[in-house]
């Protein structure tokens, strides 16, 4: 069964087009990720799905309900965590949670089991004002608040933005265990490396979905061969690679440069000679598997 069905959805604002005819479906019980930079249209899409915005064109249903007509039903059944930290900073941790429980006509006690794993980590600070929490703790509180009414689906708009790597890792572990309890989760993130933590991802850019699939399928079916190249002078290496005639793209990736060639013709010996000719030392060239970021950049280039 599909929990979300989006068909030819568009969203235009006065000056800009946020979403261009996008179509996708989300299966029950999966973690579905939208991966893309700021301004790709993720927030507009999420707001349409949680009934806060009206689509300009096309249709969308959530849990079988239409996002325009049946907005009241959807509001009862989904949990939503907006991109901006949206809790009351002048209320304590407990008061915030209590408030969100009551507006959904439930109580902390009633659904404590749902949030126990997450909330227990911040419970020692329950008398602290939300404004005084650290980034990671705020995020746990926000997630608890979004979960307290036992939603069937969770919409998390960039929950890990601006959060450090450790808190991010923990957050994804929490999502995994929520998924195991049967909740469908739709999450967006600008961090490409988080794609592999989703069951399926949609790569999104400028209001278009570039690709939808399982993350490992996206990377294994990537048609271009990639070389990871390094030398003692990376900056020079980058500009040299870019001026190599067969170069299709060269991008810094951590300690190496990911290189693709025109017509997929790597010409490794020629490349090696070219670089040694330019006095590069300790040159290492290794063929590697593509990652999501490689795919994303390649798709971005194709789109533009």
């Amino acid at each position: 069964m599909q929990t979300v069905v989006v068909d030819n959805l568009s969203k235009c604002y006065k000056q800009a087009v946020a979403l261009k005819n996008i179509t996708f479906g989300v299966d029950a019980g999966e973690i579905f990720g939208f991966i893309g930079p700021d301004g790709a249209g993720k927030t507009s899409l999420f707001r349409i799905l949680v009934t806060l915005l009206l689509p300009t064109d096309g249709t969308a249903t959530v849990l079988g309900y239409d996002v325009v007509k049946d907005y009241k039903k959807i509001r009862n059944k989904v949990g939503y965590m907006p991109g901006k930290f949206s809790l009351y900073q002048d209320l304590t941790v407990e008061e915030n949670l209590n408030f969100f429980a009551t507006i959904f006509s439930t109580s902390i006690e009633e659904n404590y089991h749902l949030i126990k794993d997450i909330y227990s980590q911040i419970e020692p600070f329950k008398k602290r004002r939300a404004g005084a929490l650290s980034g990671g703790m705020k995020q746990k509180l926000a997630l608890s608040c979004a979960l307290i009414h036992k939603p069937e689906m969770l919409f998390l708009d960039e929950p890990t933005t601006g959060v450090d790597a450790v808190s991010r890792k923990e957050f994804w572990e929490m999502l995994k265990s929520l998924k195991n309890s049967g909740i469908t989760i739709i999450v967006s993130t600008p961090y490409m490396d988080e794609a592999s933590l989703c069951d399926r991802v949609a790569l999104i850019q400028n209001g278009n979905i570039l690709k939808i699939n399982k993350p490992d399928v996206i990377t294994t079916t990537f048609e271009k061969k990639i070389l990871a190249i390094r030398s003692s002078n990376m900056h020079k290496l980058l500009s040299d690679l870019n001026s190599f005639e067969a170069c299709d793209s060269a991008f810094l990736f951590g300690q190496t440069i990911h290189y693709t060639a025109k017509q997929n013709n790597l010409m490794m010996p020629e490349l090696q000679n070219y670089l040694t000719g330019l006095n590069h030392l300790q040159v290492e060239i290794n063929p590697i598997e593509a990652n999501i970021e490689d795919c994303f950049m390649s798709l971005m280039n194709q789109a533009s």
């Binding site: 930079p37 600008p190 810094l252």
Partner: peptide, 24 residues
């Protein structure tokens, strides 16, 4: 301070190029 938050991967790399140039 977190200069590249939310930026797309290609722009992020162009940004780092700028950083390298400044450092050079």
């Amino acid at each position: 301070d977190e200069p590249t938050g939310g930026v797309d991967p290609i722009t992020r790399r162009q940004f780092w190029n700028q950083i390298y140039e400044a450092a050079a």
